[in-house]
Design a protein around this nucleic acid. Structure first.
Lengths: 212, 212
DNA sequence: GTCTATACACTGATAGAC
DNA sequence: GTCTATCAGTGTATAGAC
């Protein structure tokens, strides 16, 4: 605070706390709570290990901060379904655009969330409960209303949701695998895959499944 | 070997080595090489920690055994594409049946493989190279041949493969998440999802995408 | 606020009795 | 082959100087 100069640090606008959180996000997403190392986080943030404990008492509290942030952003994407002025399909298209851009920015987020949910179901249960209260996340209810008033075809709404999530998140999650398996078949991931192509592909799936 | 009795062990037909490998598979799949604990593996196998080192020198060698087995089973599913006597679509349908049954049995396998590939790209590169040599994995080439002779519609083969993999593996990988997000919306994962439903759903996608 | 030094628990690995 | 005991290395966390 009282430092008159700013040597050795390239990012003067980032506070130490923010740098730590960014580093923690990166490392926790890669290795999870269990596998992440405090030294790794400190190195990534470019600061000392002891400072981690100064800002966030201990490892678990630091992890909670990161996990809460990730989960909040994840649920935020579902807000669009509360907008009853748009058609069901329009809302789905907006959701597809948003969630794919979200995953493009945080490719490991879905794996991170899935993994930590699997390790700690009780914690997630409670957090979902809060998110549900505040945001009324209801993809499935929107679909079922749309089926009742004939706006879309009659489908298995749960399976549709599962398919939709699969198409949108898996490519980012599995990119290291696709990179190599495409290369082995004479294709190039960086060339053959991008977010816009994926968006179009998922929208085709929606059009086909829900009807014109 | 010279033990005349078999107290305390419920599975007499399983050798210690197999019990360790089963336990190791379970723990490594959950936590990865990094996060897995030898004590955890020993407890799961119901034996002592020292025995792990007796059978498999060290942690990494044990992990390699598990990872190699997983990868081999994974690539095995691609064999069907080498059978040129079947139509493209028939081969795809068989693949879908097989890979979904495979994931149903090893739900965490795809996450395990993806994660470890991400952590150790060089190792995977080499293993894929071997698998490629022995098994001629060519989903994409099969598709492109089918397009040339008019058997299927002209499509983006790389994106099709990505979509297909997404639909088949993500539901198993993300089941902890789906379990809670479905429950929050008044649905029940155990009731609304099963392998047969998923197979049909993916086949519908294939029919739609490749044409009748 | 940030660092160094260090306490203390845990983890992978080995030695040696049986 | 399987166990107990134990070591060296690493990990989280804290104390204290600046």
């Amino acid at each position: 605070m009282v430092k008159p100069y700013n040597q050795m640090k390239q990012l003067g606008d980032n506070s130490t706390e923010e740098k730590i959180l960014d580093a923690a996000k990166e490392v926790f997403m890669k290795h999870g709570l269990y596998g992440a190392r405090m030294q790794d986080i400190a190195d990534t943030a470019g600061i000392n290990k002891a400072l981690l404990h100064y800002y966030f008492r201990n490892k678990e509290k630091m992890f909670d901060k990161v996990f809460d942030g990730a989960l909040a952003k994840f649920f935020e994407q579902l807000d669009v379904f509360s907008n009853n002025e748009l058609s069901v399909k329009k809302r789905l298209f907006i959701y597809i655009d948003n969630i794919i851009e979200f995953y493009a920015e945080y490719p490991q987020m879905s794996m991170f969330i899935i993994k930590e949910i699997g390790n700690n179901p009780e914690i997630f249960k409670e957090k979902v409960h809060v998110a549900k209260k505040n945001k009324t996340l209801r993809l499935i209810h929107v679909l079922e209303d749309g089926m009742k008033n004939g706006e879309i075809k009659k489908i298995d709404s749960a399976m549709f949701m599962i398919n939709l999530q699969s198409l949108c998140s898996f490519p980012f999650l599995a990119s290291p695998m696709f990179k190599y398996s495409l290369k082995a078949q004479g294709k190039d991931w960086e060339k053959d895959f991008n977010s816009e192509k994926l968006k179009q592909s998922v929208k085709n799936f929606v059009e086909f499944t829900l009807g014109k």
